[in-house]
C-alpha cells in the first residue's frame, strides 16, 4: 500500500494495486449499488502509466472537494472524473473506472483527517496485492485506450511502447498532467 499525504489538504490517501483480480464484476456491482463497504475509487490501470498522473488527478479532485465544488457524488468518483480530460462525467467514469472484466485494478481510499477507517482490502479485492510501480504501469498501459481517453496530438496509437524512450514518457506525462489540470477550464 502506498500512503500519500497531500500537504495542503486534511485528507490522506491510501493507494493499492492488484493484479490477477478475480472479482471485478462483483466489485463493480457493489460499487454501483452504493454499498458503504465499497466507498473507494476503483481505477482502470489500462489508462494509467504513472503515479504522478494518478496523484495529479487526486490533487485536482481534493482541491475542488475542499472548495465545495466537485461535480460528481463523492470524492472517490471525483478522482476518477479528474483523471480524464473531458467534461463528460459518464465518459470519464467509464474510461477510467473499473471495468467489468478487468483483471488489474488500482484502488484509492481517501481518509478524512480524524476519521477512523477500518477495512480489509483483501476482503474487497480478490487478487495479488502488488507495489504500485511506474515501470509496471508503463509495461501494461494500453496506448489505444489512452489515446481514446486523452486524444493526444499527435496520436499515441501510432507509437509503439518498445520505441518509447525516457524523454517520450516525460513528454507524455507532461501532456497528461496539462490535460488533467486544465480540464473544464
Amino acid at each position: 500500500m502506498l500512503s500519500v499525504k497531500i500537504p495542503q489538504f486534511q485528507q490522506s490517501l491510501q493507494i493499492y494495486y492488484f493484479e490477477n483480480v478475480e472479482n471485478s464484476t462483483e466489485i463493480r456491482t457493489k460499487l454501483l449499488s452504493g454499498q458503504d463497504s465499497h466507498n473507494f475509487a476503483f481505477v482502470n490501470p489500462d489508462v494509467i502509466f504513472s503515479k504522478e498522473q494518478l496523484l495529479s488527478a487526486c490533487y485536482r479532485a481534493l482541491l475542488d472537494y475542499n472548495s465545495g465544488k466537485i461535480r460528481t457524488r463523492s470524492i472517490h468518483s471525483e478522482i476518477i472524473f479528474c483523471l480524464g480530460s473531458s467534461g463528460n462525467i459518464v465518459d470519464s467514469l467509464t474510461r477510467f473506472g473499473i471495468k467489468e472484466d478487468g483483471n488489474r485494478l488500482i484502488i484509492l481510499k481517501v481518509i478524512e483527517k480524524e476519521e477512523d477507517v477500518e477495512y480489509t482490502i483483501d476482503e474487497i479485492v480478490k487478487g495479488d496485492n502488488k507495489d504500485l510501480d511506474d515501470a509496471l504501469l508503463r509495461e501494461n498501459v494500453d496506448f489505444k485506450q489512452m489515446q481514446k481517453a486523452y486524444k493526444f496530438q499527435p496520436s499515441l496509437s501510432n507509437s509503439a511502447r518498445e520505441d518509447f524512450k525516457e524523454t517520450d514518457w516525460s513528454l507524455l506525462l507532461r501532456k497528461t498532467v496539462d490535460l488533467i489540470q486544465l480540464r473544464g477550464c
Binding site: 495529479s56 472548495s67 496530438q153 507532461r174 501532456k175 498532467v177 496539462d178 489540470q181 486544465l182 477550464c185
Partner: peptide
C-alpha cells in the same frame, strides 16, 4: 508543451479560482 522545440516550464498544478 505541444511544441517540443520550444523549451518552457511544465505545468504542475492549477488552482485558477
Amino acid at each position: 508543451t505541444n511544441i517540443p522545440e520550444i523549451q518552457s516550464p511544465g505545468l504542475i498544478a492549477l488552482d485558477a479560482r
